[in-house]
Design a protein around this nucleic acid. Structure first.
Lengths: 339, 339
DNA sequence: GCAGAGAATGACAACGTTGTCAAATGAGTA
DNA sequence: TACTCATTTGACAACGTTGTCATTCTCTGC
């Protein structure tokens, strides 16, 4: 690799002059600048990042730690969002996965410290509480898609409550009254908050929600859920008073609801409307008809987490601990209006 | 951050002695070692990576560049595989996405050089040719999920031909003869190679393949494909002589085939068997019945790419240019045996 | 021809680490 | 006690860069 010194020797000037030119500093003769610039590109000089960092202190590198107990593959959009934000700031991303192992996580904090990263984003693969036990790490930390149970850390999470509200409101506005729920497993934030939101929408519309239509479409512990949505949907649809719409815990659940409807010869949205959540495009765009659903804003969560890191670094951070990112409704063809 | 110097002063020894202890070098008095070690952990010293790198030359950091014209979200398993391999070697991953923009890609090569990475993995999001125009970058480069059209670079790709062969062989062994294809778009490696493999399986089984049953389930350019599998499957299934099995270009296609079958009141696998490709678990495990499919070995591709990087670095690399990773068949419930 | 100002350039130190080599210490032996 | 030899320790340079400050050069105006 070419160094400043080598370029300087070839150019017959001092190291410092070349350094000035590389960094676009003022106070260099135009002729000198031009000839050295040619030489730089000729030798394809690239500044040594390590040397710069050693001189300056912190490095323009951000660490991203994931737990990667992969549930939905789209949560990697958090990484893409983070990268997008970093790109604008000319920073770099170091990424590592703890695989949910605390010992490994400990190791990674050390690794981030060794790299003198300017901050760390901890990204969870599904919306959940997470406590970071790192008294030693002094740079800013932002939680993405998770939050501190003690509310002592900046955290960017999807607004599941609002998302649930949008699901229900959309259907209520289109005349649906008899609406069933096929939710995710109990005990996770998504289920709790979305359920709250749905009930709020009913309240605001002045419609009573029939609690007997609230069913679980998945059972079992996180990561080893068992899908029972097909059966549940089957039962719901064959009730004497069939619901006109079904709100699903996610798009996979919706997929099974589609299958149950098809097996009974019912059409979507003709006989029953279906509303998804997550916008797993692999599914929502492939279902026939395409699925109307509420999107999880993973990309925005990632981007916002990095922006927040900058705010924390500049000490201008607002006291806001949990920052909610809205979940937009994506309208496709699985819900109809009732006259 | 604590430095060797600070620890040395507190311990009343020289910097070099502390350095020796940090690195576990021999020739340090046991008593000194013990007391300094206590101090190290007390002050939670972490070696400065930049300083080490400057001293030593290359850094134990690998770069990963993706094109990220995201098609299937599972291709990020390449990243997870790479991380797994890196972890064993105590190396770190810098990740960046070019978004398919050549200018951006150029920028990223500079960034990787600035970080003095020991090698780079270029990962494509779908199996395709890719030419890297980097005469300047001297460290090893491995292509993952793509290959050089000039065959002048090490490259790790899925064995799509073998995968296609497995799809067909599995069905042929179970007595199927009238087998239809609903493929991906024309003009991509996956379609070409899998088609080849399928025909090879027919050949080996001594069965004639009916070319009139080879249909496209998607049309249009890469990244903006239009799904037509539903209609195509519908047509296939309503033929006077219905195929007993349908081999799909991927699991999304299979999903639409399921929907078409359901709309006609046909059961899977009772009336028609369905074979997927890719093992998009979001889909293959959620379909009812669960989908028998062939998995794309993204994780292994990523891991192998990093291993290959090491081989290239040690100059022991075999002349093998394109390395094929097998695509295993995942047996679930969508194919039956014909008596 | 010269002072003075301003522009252009360079010498040097420092960042934190490790390799090289020399110095100090201690143990064992004649 | 003096000597050898092994063990333990430390001084110093170097890696590539940039901030500080000093030096040199080039004008301008008298």
């Amino acid at each position: 690799m070419v160094t400043l010194k080598q370029v300087a020797e070839r150019a017959g000037v001092s190291i410092k002059t070349v350094s000035r030119i590389v960094n676009g500093d003022a106070g260099v003769n135009a002729r000198t600048r031009k000839s050295v610039e040619r030489l730089l590109s000729e030798l394809s000089y690239v500044p040594n990042h390590a040397a710069r960092q050693m001189r300056g202190g912190v490095s323009p590198v951000v660490g991203l730690m994931t737990d990667a107990v992969a549930t939905t593959p789209y949560s990697v959009d958090i990484v893409r969002g983070a990268q997008a934000a970093l790109r604008e700031a000319h920073q770099t991303l170091i990424i590592a996965s703890s695989d949910g192992d605390p010992a490994r996580e400990e190791e990674l904090w050390g690794m981030f410290r060794a790299h003198r990263v300017s901050g760390v984003v901890y990204a969870a693969m599904y919306h959940r509480p997470h406590r970071i036990g790192q008294p030693v790490f002094k740079e800013p930390i932002v939680l993405a898609n998770c939050f501190s149970p003690d509310d002592d850390r900046a955290s960017i999470i999807p607004d599941d409550e609002d998302g649930g509200c949008r699901q229900a409101r959309y259907l209520l506005e289109r005349g649906h009254r008899r609406i069933a729920l096929v939710t995710l497993i109990d005990g996770i934030e998504a289920t709790r908050l979305r359920g709250q939101g749905i009930r709020r929408a009913f309240n605001e519309a002045g419609v009573a929600f029939d609690e007997s239509l609230d069913k679980r479409g998945m059972i079992g512990p996180v990561g080893r859920e068992e899908m029972v949505a097909y059966r549940v949907a089957h039962d719901l649809i064959t009730k004497p008073q069939r619901p006109t719409a079904i709100i699903c815990g996610n798009d996979q659940v919706a997929m099974q609801v589609y299958a149950a409807a098809a097996s009974l010869g019912l059409s979507i949205p003709g006989d029953v409307s279906v509303m998804g959540f997550d916008d797993l495009r692999l599914i929502s765009e492939t279902l026939y008809p395409q699925l109307t659903t509420v999107a999880l804003p993973y990309f925005d969560i990632g981007r916002r987490a990095v922006e927040r890191l900058d705010l924390l670094a500049s000490e201008e951070d607002a006291p806001l601990r949990r920052e909610l990112i809205p979940c937009p409704l994506v309208e496709r063809n699985s819900c109809r209006s009732i006259v």
